[in-house]
Measured scan of single mutants.
Amino acid sequence: KKYKIKVYVKDKKTKKWKKIKEIEVDTKEEALEAIKKLPPNYEVKIVP
Score class of each variant (00 low, 15 high):
46 I>W: 08
48 P>I: 15
28 K>A: 09
35 I>S: 04
22 E>F: 03
25 V>R: 02
47 V>I: 13
44 V>Q: 02
27 T>P: 01
3 Y>L: 07
19 K>D: 01
39 P>S: 13
32 L>E: 11
18 K>R: 13
13 K>Y: 11
14 T>R: 09
42 Y>G: 03
40 P>R: 10
6 K>E: 15
19 K>R: 04
48 P>Y: 10
20 I>G: 01
14 T>A: 05
46 I>C: 09
16 K>E: 06
11 D>M: 06
28 K>R: 14
29 E>I: 09
37 K>V: 07
4 K>W: 08
25 V>I: 07
2 K>V: 07
47 V>M: 11
36 K>Y: 04
38 L>N: 02
12 K>C: 07
48 P>H: 13
5 I>A: 01
6 K>I: 15
23 I>W: 15
38 L>K: 02
21 K>P: 01
48 P>D: 13
9 V>N: 04
39 P>K: 07
42 Y>Q: 06
12 K>E: 14
8 Y>P: 00
40 P>S: 12
17 W>P: 02
24 E>F: 14
43 E>M: 15
40 P>M: 09
30 E>R: 04
42 Y>L: 11
9 V>Y: 11
1 K>V: 14
27 T>F: 04
42 Y>N: 05
43 E>P: 05
37 K>N: 11
10 K>E: 06
22 E>H: 03
37 K>M: 12
3 Y>P: 00
46 I>Q: 01
10 K>S: 03
25 V>C: 10
39 P>T: 06
41 N>Q: 10
31 A>K: 01
24 E>W: 14
10 K>A: 04
38 L>A: 03
25 V>M: 04
1 K>E: 10
37 K>P: 03
30 E>Y: 03
6 K>P: 01
16 K>L: 08
28 K>Q: 12
45 K>H: 14
30 E>K: 07
24 E>T: 11
28 K>C: 15
22 E>C: 07
6 K>N: 11
6 K>Y: 15
24 E>G: 09
10 K>C: 10
42 Y>H: 08
47 V>S: 10
9 V>T: 07
11 D>E: 06
25 V>P: 00
41 N>M: 13
31 A>F: 08
27 T>I: 03
10 K>L: 10
38 L>W: 11
41 N>A: 08
43 E>C: 15
25 V>H: 03
10 K>R: 14
16 K>T: 05
7 V>I: 12
25 V>K: 03
35 I>F: 03
16 K>P: 00
46 I>E: 01
44 V>N: 01
32 L>T: 07
25 V>D: 00
39 P>Y: 10
24 E>Q: 09
11 D>K: 05
39 P>C: 06
48 P>G: 09
33 E>S: 09
32 L>G: 04
44 V>L: 06
43 E>R: 15
46 I>S: 01
21 K>N: 13
17 W>I: 04
25 V>N: 00
29 E>T: 07
20 I>C: 04
17 W>D: 00
31 A>R: 01
8 Y>R: 00
19 K>Q: 12
20 I>T: 03
13 K>C: 10
5 I>E: 00
12 K>I: 10
4 K>R: 12
41 N>H: 14
7 V>K: 00
7 V>Q: 00
39 P>R: 11
1 K>G: 13
17 W>C: 05
13 K>E: 10
18 K>F: 08
22 E>N: 02
11 D>F: 03
48 P>S: 13
23 I>L: 09
29 E>G: 05
28 K>Y: 15
25 V>T: 06
46 I>V: 10
34 A>C: 10
19 K>P: 05
20 I>E: 02
13 K>P: 02
29 E>L: 11
33 E>Y: 03
36 K>C: 09
24 E>Y: 15
40 P>C: 10
37 K>S: 13
41 N>I: 11
36 K>S: 13
16 K>S: 04
43 E>D: 09
36 K>W: 03
4 K>E: 02
43 E>F: 15
29 E>M: 11
26 D>Y: 09
47 V>F: 12
29 E>D: 09
32 L>Y: 14
6 K>H: 14
44 V>T: 09
21 K>R: 12
15 K>Q: 11
24 E>D: 11
11 D>H: 09
13 K>Q: 08
26 D>T: 08
2 K>T: 07
27 T>Y: 03
11 D>I: 06
44 V>F: 12
14 T>F: 04
31 A>Q: 02
21 K>H: 11
35 I>T: 04
47 V>T: 11
48 P>T: 14
32 L>I: 11
28 K>I: 14
46 I>N: 01
42 Y>M: 08
43 E>Q: 14
42 Y>C: 07
4 K>V: 15
26 D>P: 05
26 D>C: 09
34 A>N: 04
48 P>E: 14
3 Y>W: 15
45 K>D: 06
24 E>K: 05
19 K>I: 10
29 E>Y: 07
4 K>P: 00
42 Y>A: 11
6 K>V: 15
11 D>Q: 05
37 K>A: 14
39 P>N: 11
21 K>T: 14
37 K>G: 12
29 E>Q: 12
13 K>H: 11
14 T>V: 02
27 T>A: 03
18 K>I: 14
39 P>I: 10
18 K>M: 09
13 K>D: 08
46 I>P: 01
3 Y>V: 05
44 V>P: 04
24 E>N: 09
26 D>W: 11
11 D>N: 11
28 K>V: 13
30 E>M: 07
19 K>A: 04
32 L>R: 11
38 L>V: 06
22 E>K: 01
15 K>M: 09
46 I>Y: 04
22 E>A: 02
33 E>M: 07
27 T>S: 14
12 K>G: 10
15 K>V: 01
43 E>W: 15
36 K>I: 07
24 E>S: 12
45 K>F: 12
8 Y>V: 00
40 P>E: 07
43 E>N: 13
16 K>F: 05
38 L>H: 02
35 I>E: 01
23 I>H: 02
13 K>S: 07
45 K>M: 12
31 A>V: 14
5 I>K: 00
29 E>N: 07
46 I>A: 01
33 E>L: 10
30 E>A: 10
36 K>M: 09
23 I>C: 09
24 E>V: 14
4 K>D: 01
10 K>N: 04
38 L>R: 01
33 E>D: 12
38 L>Q: 03
45 K>W: 14
16 K>A: 06
39 P>A: 09
33 E>C: 07
1 K>S: 12
43 E>I: 15
43 E>A: 15
5 I>Y: 05
48 P>L: 15
45 K>Q: 13
17 W>R: 04
18 K>A: 04
24 E>L: 13
21 K>I: 15
13 K>M: 09
44 V>A: 13
7 V>R: 00
13 K>W: 07
11 D>T: 06
34 A>V: 15
32 L>P: 00
5 I>Q: 00
21 K>F: 15
20 I>A: 03
15 K>T: 04
10 K>H: 09
24 E>P: 05
45 K>I: 15
11 D>C: 06
21 K>A: 14
41 N>K: 11
3 Y>K: 01
